[in-house]
Design a protein around this nucleic acid. Sequence first.
RNA 1: GGCGGCAUGGCCAAGUGGCUAAGGCAGAGGACUGCAAAUCCUUUAUCCCCGGUUCGAAUCCGGGUGCCGCCUCCA
Length: 487
Amino acid sequence: MTLKVYNTLNNRKEEFIPRTAGKVDMYVCGPTTYNLIHLGNARPLIVFDTVRRYLEYTGYEVNYVQNFTDIDDKIINRAKEEGMDPLALADKYIKEYYKDAGALGVRPATVHPKVSEHLSEIIDMIQQIIDNGYAYEVDGDVYFGVSKFTGYGKLSGRKLEDMQAGARIDVDERKQHPMDFALWKAAKPGEPAWDSPWGKGRPGWHIECSAMANKYLGIGFDIHGGGFDLIFPHHENEIAQAEACTGCGPFARYWMHNGFITVNEEKMSKSLGNFFTLREILAKYDPEVVRFYMLSTHYRSPLDFDDTKLEMNKKSLTRLHNALDNIKALINGVSYGDSDISLEKEIKSLLDILGKTEREFGEAMDDDFNTSLAVACLFDLAREANAFGKALDVHAGKVLPVTVKETLEKVKEKFLQLGLVLGLFQQEGAVPEESGIIEKLMNVLVEVRQEARARKDWDTADAIRNKLGQIGIVLEDTPQGVRWKQK
RNA sequence: GGCGGCAUGGCCAAGUGGCUAAGGCAGAGGACUGCAAAUCCUUUAUCCCCGGUUCGAAUCCGGGUGCCGCCUCCA
């Protein structure tokens, strides 16, 4: 099994070979923290968190760097509106970011560097680029001269000549080439500013990632990720800066880009009125559903978001949870010991399926992180496990061989393990609180209902079940006894 | 205008040359159940259109149609 990764740099799937055996260094562009993160921000978080989890699952040690852009025009404008200090505003939304990411089951990166804490690295890098002849200063601004960097356009597959023709921006006459971009912006009155060899100012947008990736991972690190829209100009510029500074390349070896999220088939944007913060979605849906939804499509494909699909995915996920619940109920609700019931054939068959699931799951993920297929593997296992449970039903009430329990434990473990690679089932281990009082109350209700059923008093039995149903508690009568769960 | 992507059953979505085109949701039928729930079994596709390459194509090539994205801050 070898991992293949689609590399935007060459527009094809390539075998993944890390620069250091057993280790992966990856950098993912993080949010500009001027607001709560929106739906679109959530996708790369989930995608690259899953990439990281899978790499770790296959034995790599992953060094994961994700920046926070806490110095930026949008932050400055927003801060002005709210009468806040820009850095304080950024800091506030960094805290909110952690809440949202955490809810989605996204683990914190190994390092979360902030622009505001890396000014000296950034300034040093800009100076080096100037010294190397790739950048020039004009009135306190510093621009990168794209025509001097021969590799410009290699990531996005664009040629400078073509871009010139299509440029729609007002060209700053001080630029040597219309596509030149700012490494350093001179401060206007009232803006946050830092001292530099070119006077007071702040970094341009692209330089931060080059500088921080370089600091924490060094030139030639393994994976650089982000959204499709960042290919140009952001990532193209990152490459130009880093390689112009160090004089060598490649800056990063594998470039991965996740597809966009659309809402009702249109790009999400404030002007179209289909802009959603993650918070708004999480108010209506379990974060696990959102995560599952995003992983149900390959990361490079566009994904359309709407309530109908969310609802569909919620039901799909429930099927997986039900399978897990069914397995657990069999483990806990059946007596095991010496038994003359033979289930060797069923056990062997289930164990074969288990091995097959694990293998196919790996093959799916090895193929450029095909989470859609990987999820299908979980559904296949769920069906087989349920069928196994079905086979046990005919022996309800009898003592079953311990090997059955051991098999079920293995299935449960593998199910949870593979689910966790996708970041699912993270709540499974959660300990129920409430000092067990709800548990006790439910036992009383179930007992009363069972007594009613014993004397065929269906009206009473059904009334209890229906009324519980109205408050979101589902009762299920199974061969192994009564089960209840919250909907 | 330049560049790139996509088009698979009612819906979502894998599959990129060859056994019966994964999986999920919804629908239909059956089993189980006092009735349910959960679950299992069965069932639903001429892979956008037209040409071509090939013994053989959803899958490769050409053309067409439709949709989307990037080129400007954007995940």
